[in-house]
């Protein structure tokens, strides 16, 4: 199969869906003439024109709301946030409008919309530009939240997100944009809400998402060299959350380490832990451990940033601790 970069796979999904469905269009800062701040939308303006590839000024609350309004009456917008950090400015539109209109109207209106962009720490972008926003969004009923970690999933989850009749957030990652992987040509839909087992193992389950997937796989390699066989599960979707796949694995391994970049307080990792301990109480041989970003704002200094986000060393440590319990 041919290989694509993650950013190209995202673009291919958007392009194919825009060809397929006239109602789909994209808007955001620098998505058109500049070809995308991270080049995800490169070439799309030339293909679709300014009507369907809309450059917006810096007005996240305004254009997020405008897209929601357009979705209410029949369009299917894709909104790019230059990074998810800036979605905080539009948070009220997502929280109070996108996810409430259907319920408040007694089901009369739906909001088929995709919000997307890179999430989490990039490289030394410091405290205001390093938020892992899934912690907030995964809490909200009415939203779907997907986090592709491979090029194939970038295409498949994006296409599913665009076809979904609900607001779907696609949390991408700047550090993954350049990775390559095999991507099916033509229609490729990855169902939202189904986790993937990325590595089979028998002794400890690692459940994770986004850029912590490659980190966890690296840790699993290191642990295999020590004789510890880890099963690595990529959740892919945080809402809906496929705890069933994780529970099945934990019944086999008896141990679970959850790895995520976001802060330790609450979030999808804590939610997963809660569900699995209830599902698999009798199978657990050790407490569930979460290996997370530190409970602090992101420092600029390179070494401190590396210490703040989980790396393969911290993941191996967490697994060793669980094994030794």
């Amino acid at each position: 199969m041919r290989e694509l970069r993650y950013r190209e796979a995202l673009r291919e999904a958007m392009t194919e869906e825009m060809v397929r469905d006239e109602r789909v269009f994209i808007m955001g800062e620098e998505v058109g003439h500049y070809q995308g701040a991270y080049k995800v939308t490169e070439g799309m303006l030339a293909q679709f024109g300014e009507k369907r590839v809309m450059d917006t000024p810096i007005a996240e609350e305004g254009f997020a709301g405008i897209a929601i309004g357009a979705a209410m009456v029949g369009l299917r917008p894709i909104v790019e946030f230059m990074t998810w950090n800036f979605s905080a400015v539009a948070f009220d539109q997502i929280l109070s409008n996108a996810t409430k209109l259907r319920q408040m109207s007694g089901g009369q209106f739906t909001v088929p919309i995709v919000f997307r962009g890179p999430n989490g720490a990039a490289r030394q972008t410091a405290a205001q530009h390093s938020h892992a926003m899934e912690t907030f969004y995964a809490q909200i009923p009415g939203l779907k939240v997907v986090v592709p970690s491979t090029a194939a999933d970038a295409k498949g989850l994006m296409a599913s997100a665009i076809r979904d009749d609900n607001p779907v957030l696609v949390l991408e990652d700047e550090r993954l944009y350049g990775i390559k992987g095999e991507v099916p040509e033509g229609e490729h839909l990855v169902p939202i809400g189904v986790a993937a087992v990325r590595r089979a193992g028998t002794q400890c389950t690692i459940a994770t998402w986004g850029k912590m997937v490659p980190v966890s796989l690296e840790a699993a390699e290191l642990l295999a060299a020590e004789g510890v066989q880890c099963e690595v599960i990529d959740l892919r979707s945080l809402r809906p959350l496929d705890h069933g796949t994780v529970a099945t694995s934990v019944r086999k391994t008896g141990r679970l380490v959850i790895v995520h970049e976001a802060w330790p307080y609450g979030g999808p990792g804590a939610e997963l832990s809660d569900r699995v301990q209830r599902d698999c109480f009798d199978s657990l041989r050790a407490p569930i451990v979460r290996c997370t970003g530190r409970d602090a704002s992101m420092p600029y200094n390179k070494k401190l940033e590396e210490l703040t986000i989980p790396g393969s060393a911290t993941v191996t440590q967490a697994v060793r601790a669980v094994m030794a319990y």
Binding site: N85, A88, A126, A127, Y300, L304
Partner: peptide
């Protein structure tokens, strides 16, 4: 070293910062 280029602060000189969110 916690702020970097975008976040220069200097309380003594009443410099209340460089800020990253437009």
């Amino acid at each position: 070293g916690l702020g970097g280029s975008m976040h220069f602060f200097d309380a003594d000189n009443h410099m209340l910062g460089g800020h990253g969110i437009v």
